[in-house]
């Protein structure tokens, strides 16, 4: 189990990429409730980034209610369901992603296929 960060082509900040990768692993069920995440120092060293970058990513995941960071015990996955958000808040990132696909000139059935395939990947661990 690992996360991937793109230093050149992905325009999201590194900490956001780490957040999104860990979120995807939690959504897929690869990271289960109670599992421990590696120390900030280890992930930062492996990726060759500053300690603060990973600490910010962990704080963001904690803010969203997906992990808890306990002193001495490290970061632990709380649950697959993050803090409750309103319908509009949940739709916003989806709309932004769909807009990108439409602007890329993809036809409707191709977009539906991409969305379906991504969703199947994410729901695989949902039993």
């Amino acid at each position: 189990m690992y996360i991937v960060v793109d230093f050149e082509k992905d325009h999201r900040p590194i900490y956001q990429q780490v957040v999104d990768e860990i979120k995807a692993l939690i959504a897929r069920g690869s990271l289960r409730e109670g599992e421990q995440l590696p120390p900030v120092r280890q992930v930062a060293a492996d990726l060759g980034v500053n300690l603060n970058t990973i600490a910010t990513a962990y704080r963001e995941l904690q803010r969203e209610g997906l992990i808890t960071v306990r002193h001495g015990a490290g970061a632990i996955v709380l649950s697959r369901k993050g803090a409750l958000k309103s319908d509009e808040e949940l739709r916003k990132p989806l709309r932004a992603a769909l807009t990108q696909l439409v602007l890329a000139g993809l036809p409707r059935n191709r977009i539906m296929a991409i969305v379906g395939s991504e969703l199947r990947g994410l729901m695989k661990g949902n039993g």
Binding site: Y2, I3, D6
Partner: peptide, 13 residues
């Protein structure tokens, strides 16, 4: 070579 995409294990040892 450029620094492109790298990974980090999420396994706690």
């Amino acid at each position: 070579e450029g620094d492109e995409r790298f990974a980090s294990s999420l396994r706690t040892r």
